[in-house]
């Protein structure tokens, strides 16, 4: 399996920071008012960020 790719669709992100706070490996951080992927290499593909993103903004491939 390839390394996971995590994406934040900036147009959809409303900056609630749920992904930032609940990612077990701290992949995300807030940059301005939107979440950004700051440590992609830490992703374990647990999918919790995608499941909990209310705005369809986080995708894990």
């Amino acid at each position: 399996m390839n390394n996971p790719t995590v994406k934040v669709i900036e147009d959809y992100c409303k900056g609630c920071s749920i992904c930032v706070e609940f990612c077990p490996t701290e992949v995300f951080d807030m940059v301005g008012f939107v979440a950004q992927v700051v440590r992609p290499e830490a992703c374990t593909r647990c999918m919790l960020c995608e499941l909990r993103c209310p705005d369809f903004a986080v995708r894990v491939y």
Partner: peptide, 27 residues
């Protein structure tokens, strides 16, 4: 793998009207 939500979403309707952090989108 990312679940393909697009197959069930009407095109062009996102972002939805719910406030930042509202759980309705999760539901």
């Amino acid at each position: 793998m990312a679940f393909d939500y697009e197959q069930y979403l009407r095109p062009g309707k996102l972002p939805h009207i719910w406030c930042p952090g509202c759980g309705h989108g999760i539901v």
